[in-house]
Design a protein around this nucleic acid. Sequence first.
DNA 1: CATGTTTCCTGACAGC
DNA 2: TGCTGTCAGGAAACAT
Length: 316
Amino acid sequence: MPELPEVETIARGVHQRLSGDRIVMAWFGSHREPFKTPPARQAKGLEGRAILSVHRTGKHLVCELGPGLPNAQGTTSQTAEKLISRDKKRQGTTSVVPKVQQGKCGALAPVERSSAQWIVHLGMTGRLLVTTPDAPLAPHTHARLSLASGRELRFVDPRRFGRLEWRELGRTPAFQAAGIDPLTIASEKFYRLFHRPHTPIKAALLNQKLLSGVGNIYADESLFRSGIRPRRLSGRLTRAELEALRLALRQVLEDAIRLGGSSVSDYVDADGVRGFFQLEHCVYLRTGLPCRRCQTPIRRIELAGRGTHYCPRCQH
DNA sequence: CATGTTTCCTGACAGC
DNA sequence: TGCTGTCAGGAAACAT
């Protein structure tokens, strides 16, 4: 299931391959979920747009899109053309705004300001794949974006817990995560955030309004690495314990990103490649197996409706 | 208000 | 073999 490290891996892969490309045509194959914005409106909005960049916010993938300009082949669809002319009339100022980006080596590159966003949440089983147009179509493919480069970006999601959302900036505010990014949260902020007297620490870790990006795997793994039992009430943890947890969480997420994420269930990155962090798991899905640190069998309980794994000897 | 519970959805797998 | 039942879970909706 894609959590922060998996989404980060996919975002980097898609960004590397697709930034600078342009969406020629958008196809949406299902009329029900997973659409947060009606599919027809998403298709209209996406066609003709340049992909400026792709990045991760919490567990969401955000594609920053340029204004809808005619594509290289001159095959811009009617819907896209309508959108372009309307945009030009409405607000010429936000169309192309040349900006200067200060690179690390002092290089200057013109940067277009994003005028729209396509936001992808992968849910449990969502996959975002860069393919050739003739690649066999996986079952449960809900979206196909054909690109000026001749490739396709596909969204596949068997369980349909994923969500696709379209935002036209100016009309709608830019996407923001509800909580704070666990990779960058400061010590004091983390301490105050988790000072909740009635919430088990694991439930708090999973709450996306507090931190954005932690799911079941990395909640269990960070609690093991900091030696804290999942049922402990977060407000009763000491300052030292919460600091240990913050550092363990950051480390486990960074390690996982380095290994391309955890491939449990059927997670793959934008090229269909599996991650390797599942080999480093200490407790997640290791019920009954000996603890890597003390050999005590890993215990499984249910907490906040989720399978929860911990070592009864290493975690207090 | 802050927690806990249910719901959505399909594939994988166990057991008969 | 093929059927049924159970389980997995992110986050919204609903209940306590």
